[in-house]
Design a protein around this nucleic acid. Sequence first.
RNA 1: GGCGAGGUAGCUCAGUUGGUUAGAGCACAGGAUUCAUAACCCUGAGGUCGGGAGUUCAAAUCUCCUCCUCGCUACCA
Length: 699
Amino acid sequence: MEFKRHLVTAALPYANGPVHIGHLAGCYLPADIYVRYQRAQKRDVKFICGSDEHGVPITIRAMREGVTPQDVVDKYNTIIKDSFEGMGISFDIYSRTSNPTHKETSQAFFKKLYDDGAFEERESEQYYDAEKDVFLADRYIIGTCPNCANPNAYGDQCEKCGSTLSPEQLINPRSALSNSPLVKKPTTHWYFPLNKYEDFLKEWIVVGKKDEWKSNVYGQCKSWLDSGLQPRAMTRDSSWGVPVPLPGANGKVLYVWFDAPIGYISATKELTNQWADYWCQEDTKLVHFIGKDNIVFHCIIFPAMLKAHGGFVLPENVPANEFLNIEGEKVSTSRNWAVWVDEYLKDFPDQQDALRYVLCANAPESKDNDFTWKDFQDRVNNELSAVLGNFENRAFVLMHKLCKGRVPALHADEMNEMDNALIADIKEAKTKVENAIESYKFREGLAEVIDLARKGNKYLQDNAPWSLAKTPKLQEQNQKRIDICMHLCLQLTANLAILLNPFLPYTATKMRKKMKVVERMLDWENAGRIDLLKVNYPLLAPELLFRKIEDEEVAAQVEKLRENLKKATQQIMENKPTTASEAETPLAEAKATITFDDFAKIDLRVGTILKAEKVEKADKLLKLEVDMGTEVRTIVSGIAMHFAPEEIIGKQVSVVANLAPRKMRGIESNGMILMAQNADGKLIFVSPTQTADNGSEVK
RNA sequence: GGCGAGGUAGCUCAGUUGGUUAGAGCACAGGAUUCAUAACCCUGAGGUCGGGAGUUCAAAUCUCCUCCUCGCUACCA
């Protein structure tokens, strides 16, 4: 299909923290390259982004910092926006989901689906904070983690041991708002029956996108579709978000993943009155740039929503990237293991293109990649400066030395094979870069540009105009050859500026200014031409495009990473005691609030493990037979990651004997083995130091 | 445990429908050169293509088994 317009979105960054270079490499940089290329092709393109400002993590952060959610999103929206601007990410609009337009748009979207009967209404029991008179989302519920005993685990996840939880699993759940214990109350929510769209999605993706979408994206989608889709709640009980536009729905807001993608539409509305052309006309090419963590929302849920609503185009492609690791380790915001964009801009002023270069050249297009500062230095110094920057500099210096600072003539009568080969290379490079960008292979496209500069270096070397001008007399004899060589080098430089422009816009602009040409010269259609610079046109003096990255800078950045990690780790330790000594105080307090009667309810006994075996199809579970003196009990315990079955047989352990039985993986567990856990996550049995009788009471 | 994506030179990656001595860049070694940011240019060394079995005249490429990494998911009382 011939597309009349292009609509490009980049994932809405979540406004509860700054952006790091992983975000840039995974999503925003490729999107920006793609869009700049489309603009250079003079195609009708709109580049949409904005802050995602709803959801529970923002309210949690607000509570921790003692400010309002609006304060939180205002702060980070500014930081994020500035980071993008600073790196030259050229959105046509950077909006935010807390804007009125978004409220209207997402409510209207919801209302349309509601009126069409697209939702299923369901009542369920959920935790309720009586003191604050609100239902609590999973994130608002705090309790003791059943795995690692962290007393501050959230209802959806324990940040200390990383396990996914549901609120029901928490021990002694309490409210994050009031710290009071919770009760369960019925509440109503609207579910979107994704299962009803399975056939449509299978046809559209599994059949239709097989050879078009990247294998990681396609595979992930197919996996979801094959395992069957479930209805998903599209509303939440919360005070922060877009209110559900229905009577009697007080205290209910749209689920962030319902409202966030609609944010793309709202932002387009803010940008232009013609927004409907971009979203509703069949000849629009919609492309979502995202990271791999967003695949399901952009490929499954949002398209199903759009389909249910009707009248919208569906994404033509969703080129999701994998993750970028830092110095061999996964990015972690809580451990502050990341290279933050705002800090890079401060530490490396005017070096946007150096980072853009490295992040694109090493983008995680097909698998997770590693960013190291050493690699950053190597690539900037040995590829960007040495090949590209150096060629451009050579061309300018030689032109000034041998051609009086003006573009020399191209004497057709004396052109040879080398000249023609170079011209062919320039034309070929245009096609190669074009194909690479159109198929979302940005690292390949950028490599082609560098390769063209490399060919320029070789051409210079082979012609060696400096040798042709060793003496004034020689130069006079050879001036025609020198002119041809320098003419082509300069035309090549102009071509490099065009081809480079989507990738390294700052550099392209610098080059353009030195050549004293108008911005229009960078139009893509001009690539491949060798008459971009007029003969006899005077150019500016040489000036380096890039500077080298020094060893000290690299060392300083690595040091900074380690320092940040250290500080963040310390902070975590202070907030959430993990070592035995730090845990003593809170433990004593906990005892004071529990009555003896409460304690006496727990029947703790000593037992001996007689048998142990791995539970089928469960990574973490061991099935234990424990001799309790009067009986042998079956207990299922989540310790398989820490102990081999054979090494714990005969071990005497402490058992909570009167815990209500519970089935796990089809096996009924009758009790719980007590374990101590170190800060490093290691498990240790809580056992009698001398052998006790099996079944003897622990008190 | 299920599913998905990867595993190719020291590093980062290409390898189209199976076909002659498996490619590129960086790093490394040697050479040449001086216009240039000690940069460029040339040459070289370096790989049992994660491991095993099979299909084939022929496998990095197809089939089966197995190991490792990342992600989603189940499981954790």
